[in-house]
């Protein structure tokens, strides 16, 4: 009897142990993520400048946010940014992984060099590329001029038609190394025998890629796309802020930069929180749909 109770206690202790060990992380997560989120959601129903007393106004902040032309424009810019960044980060990342997966000279150097920008901060990268794009001193226009490609010289950050793409490129450049490494590890785990069997059946390189590589690395593609798309939606503040501040003429204003501006420059914290909740809902829905669609076959 005693032995049974003691064994049950031991089992309970063993099963509870992992939960106990996650408690510190859970406390941190609750304090720094869950609690601010709940408080942000709560204040989105109030008119509040952060200093004076809060005034309850129901869902008006959500209406004000959706009526705000600049916020709607910033949402559109965010979508454009997210689509461009997701496609290119994954396209280039996968392409580079395929190149490096083969036995090429300087493989380790290429991998290190391509991964290095991942370790740079957004501020450093933003300042660096702002100078590269600079119309007076920038090496990009200087190089184009030197190559005789004067027709390609642009106001990379001053032309409202291309500024968002110039900023997006910097984000892509910074992160392709990260996505490349993930793809590379996935490619290296695909069994060689599958390719050998396919070749015996007469498959060419393209067929191998479509029918073997893609299905075999699908889980990593899902992960990469999810990381890229959510990252592009919620992690663009520093880069945009450093490079353009949302200009010219709001052409690079994203939902994040505009909600921060609304909170701390316009002192309208309630409306800014409503904007953040709207952005959260959009990212949640997109992430959920993307995850469901891309894992449909696996299910």
């Amino acid at each position: 009897m005693f032995k049974q109770v003691s064994q049950r206690k031991k089992r309970l202790g063993s099963s509870a142990f992992p939960y106990v060990m996650t408690v510190p992380a859970l406390i941190l997560f609750t304090i720094f993520v869950i609690a601010p989120f709940i408080y942000g959601f709560y204040t989105s129903f109030y008119q509040w400048d952060g200093l004076s007393d809060m005034k309850y106004i129901g869902i008006k902040n959500y209406i004000y946010a959706l009526q705000d032309e600049t916020f709607r424009l910033s949402l559109k810019n965010t979508f454009v940014y997210a689509v461009v960044v997701t496609i290119f980060k994954n396209g280039i990342g996968l392409g580079l992984a395929l190149l490096i997966a083969n036995q090429i000279r300087g493989k380790a150097f290429c991998r290190t060099a391509l991964y290095m920008p991942v370790t740079f901060s957004y501020v450093v990268v933003g300042v660096l590329w702002t100078w590269i794009y600079n119309p007076t001193f920038g090496i990009l226009n200087g190089m184009l001029e030197w190559l005789g490609l004067d027709g390609l010289i642009q106001g990379w950050l001053s032309d409202p038609n291309i500024a968002i793409f110039s900023v997006a490129w910097v984000d892509i450049w910074k992160w392709i190394g990260f996505h490349m490494v993930l793809y590379l590890s996935a490619l290296q785990s695909v069994p060689k025998t599958l390719y050998e069997a396919a070749r015996i059946d007469g498959a060419n390189k393209f067929d191998e890629f479509i029918h073997i590589t893609i299905p075999q690395i699908n889980s990593i593609i899902v992960l990469n796309v999810l990381l890229a798309i959510t990252g592009a939606f919620v992690n663009n503040y520093n880069l945009v802020n450093v490079m353009t501040g949302g200009g010219p003429f709001n052409s690079t204003e994203t939902a994040l930069t505009y909600s921060v501006k609304t909170a701390f420059s316009y002192r309208n914290l309630g409306k800014a929180n409503a904007m953040s909740i709207i952005l959260f809902a959009i990212v949640f829905i997109i992430g959920f749909l993307q995850f469901k669609m891309m894992t449909k076959d696996a299910d």
Binding site: T130, W131, Y133, N134, P135, T136, F137, G155, W156, L157, S158, D159, G247, P248
Partner: peptide
């Protein structure tokens, strides 16, 4: 001209 739109304080002073 529009070059000014892509120029910050340091760039302006340097130029």
């Amino acid at each position: 001209d529009t070059d000014s739109l892509n120029t910050d304080a340091d760039g302006m002073r340097a130029a």
